[in-house]
Amino acid sequence: MPKNAKVIVRYGPYRACGVVDYRTSRLDGLQAFLTKHGHTVELTKHEDWNTVELMVNGEMVYKCDINDLDYGGDGELDNLCLEASEAVQKAH
C-alpha cells in the first residue's frame, strides 16, 4: 500500500458516564498516529456500538472495540494504534 493511504475510520456510539453517544475523544490518538505516518483520515459514524473499523480502498482492514483505545493522547503508547497502522500498511 502506498504510504499516503486514505483511511476511513468508521466508529459507533459507546457508553460513557451512563450516556450512549458518538464521541471522537478515544479516536484522537489513532487519528494522530495515522496522520503522523502519512495517511489521510476521515471519520464516519456507523450504527454498531463500541466498534471502530478502518477501511482502505473499500476493504475493512482493522476492527477493534472503541473502549480499548486510549483516551486522548498521540497514540504513540497505544498498542492498538500500532496494530491499526500495520494493518493499513498491509492493505492492498
Rank of each mutant, 00 (worst) to 15 (best):
M1N: 14
K6M: 10
K6W: 07
I8G: 03
I8C: 12
R10D: 13
R10W: 15
R10E: 14
R10N: 09
R10F: 15
G12P: 06
P13I: 10
R15D: 00
C17S: 07
G18S: 04
D21I: 00
R23F: 00
T24Q: 05
L27V: 12
D28F: 04
G29W: 06
F33Y: 11
L34Y: 04
K36A: 15
H37D: 10
H37L: 14
G38S: 09
H39C: 03
T40Y: 14
T40L: 10
T40N: 07
V41R: 06
L43S: 05
T44D: 14
K45D: 08
K45G: 13
K45T: 12
K45A: 11
K45P: 08
H46L: 03
E47Y: 14
E47W: 05
W49H: 06
W49A: 07
N50W: 02
N50V: 01
V52N: 11
E53T: 02
E53A: 06
L54Q: 00
V56C: 08
G58S: 01
G58L: 00
Y62T: 04
K63A: 13
C64S: 03
D65M: 08
D65A: 03
I66H: 06
N67R: 06
N67D: 05
N67H: 03
D68A: 13
L69G: 02
D70M: 14
Y71P: 00
G72R: 13
D74S: 12
L77E: 15
D78P: 04
N79L: 14
L80T: 06
E83V: 10
E86Q: 12
A87R: 02
K90G: 09
K90R: 04
H92L: 15
